[in-house]
Design a protein around this nucleic acid. Structure first.
Lengths: 199, 199, 199, 199
DNA sequence: TGCTAATCGAGACGGTACGTCTAGTCTTTTT
DNA sequence: AAAAAGACTAGACGTACCGTCTCGATTAGCA
């Protein structure tokens, strides 16, 4: 609605031009979707956004920073609150997988993780972000504690870690279309354990 | 024994020179350890191995193939057999983390996963490899089933997935030095479940 | 007196601020001396002068214009009047070389000539300036004509051209420290000719 | 006749491809002629020659080196040998001006001189080249000495310098179309001197 | 005296070029 | 016949300037 026409964005004075920022983020997402992480380069984003490379580098010091902001712009995943922890967790994972599958966020987040393996700042940014998300997921578990559904001694960070790890690995190995039963099993094992009940 | 002498390896005629192959794999590992995945390039490996790039491309069609072979050359991690599943799993994770931490395999495997995010063949190779490893891990669980330690209905693939996911995520986010207690908790939650026992 | 204080020059209303102009010219000269023509950029001058780039572009439409004004601000070189043409010319060249060597004018003029090779306006400005200087130099010769030292038919413009060319080439090839004897010879050849006197 | 078709030059093995070198030199000349020194960039030459930038940088470390080689490929200027020094010098200058005017060498040499004002290596290369040319020009004068046309004490380097300087300045100030009479005068002044003959 | 217009420093903008690095491919030479 | 080695085109990297633009503050001169 804003960056419509040819007249080409100019500077709007000695401050950041939000139209340019928007165009760049939009272009980054488009490039990622169309060409994948392999084809994702600052150069390509600049071309697509009709922006100068220095404009990108001015505001995003690294590929990682750009990826992260693109990812964070995506609508968040709904965290259900059914009153039953097991259903909450299954719902969360189903929503997350669907979100990753159906929007570009899957590609973006995969790229971000990949980038973090070679770029120190990306790793830091990802660690930061993950910490935030984990505590967010942990809240589902804390609610269950408050309801008395699970013992207070349970370390909700570790549980959140198990759940998130399961999601990451499915993302990284192209298994986001795993059937619902598998997700159910995984959550069930975490909830009920796999050991035979003591006789 | 040959690849360090100055007289430079020559062709040994119309067949693969095993010294070259060895030198290349060795160089790949060294480069990865010294410069990380960021500094890992075919160019750098060729330089270090005193080999031509085409020699590398002839035998390993992609960076991923090279990484995979380097990874597979590493000594496998021990899978303990204590007779108690929980101890087996904790031991396995502890061994794996130590192996990743203390040898170059950590870097190598991280790189392989990263590569798989942009390279189709790497993804395929990784999927293949993971499948093999997962069934391997699943055997620990099958043993427990055989012992009657856990019910036969348990889907050992899913359990193996949960365990491996936990390991991957720690590798990918630089948390291989996580304390033992956390590993214990994670395994315990999978074994016993987090839900309060029905009164 | 104003441009060194921190409070930073502001506009002084709807007219050119002489302090800014002065600061810019001063900065241009400093940059040229310190970094040479290679390091001479509008950006660098603006930085050094604590001025905005548009302020420079407003008053000097091109790098050449700025260079020219910087050059013209320099004190002119003395033209001796000894009553003997040969001594005048030698003195003139010696003074010019010394001036170019010991002040920034050498760098400035070199830069101006270089700039004129790619910039049309610079070429025009330089041509204009050269014309003025040449007629100035020609006056030395005209004086000699008036004294009857040389024939009236001598084309003083061509002589001035020969002398100036000699100076330019020494400037452009870093030979300003040429010994006095060489200058003497050059002038002598122009004065007396190199041909053997008809016997 | 060599780099004819589209099939695009490839490597011809582990040694310099003369077709590429030729295409690059050709492209450099074309770019200079079409866009002038202002538009002369390694980037543009690479584009025009369908060559990679590194290929250019591999063989020519600087813009200056490329310019110099382009200049030296041009057919040399004929040095007449009429048996009369004055005619030789006039002929040489006329030929040189025509050569500069009618081929691209004028642009190329101007650019080289300009480049030398900001690039140290260009300056060195130019100095080197000039030295060679000067001694070459000095030979005309030495021949005249041998004929007894001019005294043996004449410093032919200085005379060559005067002549070359005159040529350079005309090149640098776009005065290559100077009429023949002016050239004649200049040479005549150097030959016969401007001073009135001692009565 | 209050409005208008031009000026100032500042810095962002879209671009182009820099010189370096790597990707993969090609060809000659060597064994 | 195939290994080795270096050259090749192609294009991305991150940086420096280019010349233009817009801002907000500032002041002089006209009304």
């Amino acid at each position: 609605m804003a960056e419509d026409a040819d007249p080409a964005r100019r500077s709007i004075g000695a401050r950041r031009n939000p139209d340019s920022a928007e165009a760049i983020l939009q272009a980054a997402e488009t490039v990622l979707v169309e060409a994948g992480y392999a084809g994702f380069s600052i150069e390509a984003v600049a071309r697509r956004a009709r922006a100068g490379k220095p404009t990108i580098y001015r505001w995003w010091p690294s590929k990682a920073a750009l990826l992260l902001e693109v990812y964070q712009r995506q609508k968040r995943v709904d965290v259900p609150d059914t009153g039953v922890l097991e259903e909450d967790l299954v719902g969360f994972l189903k929503n997350l997988f669907a979100h990753w599958r159906e929007t570009s966020s899957g590609s973006v987040f995969r790229s971000l993780i990949a980038e973090a393996q070679s770029d120190e700042t990306a790793a830091a940014a990802l660690a930061d972000y993950s910490l935030g998300r984990r505590s967010h997921t942990a809240q589902i578990i804390e609610r269950a504690k408050a309801r008395g559904e699970i013992p207070a001694e349970i370390d909700s960070a570790v549980v959140a870690d198990l759940i998130a790890s399961f999601a990451w690995r499915h993302l990284l190995t192209n298994r986001l279309d795993e059937d619902e039963a598998t997700i159910g099993k995984a959550v069930n094992y975490v909830m009920r354990g796999i050991a035979a009940p003591a006789s």
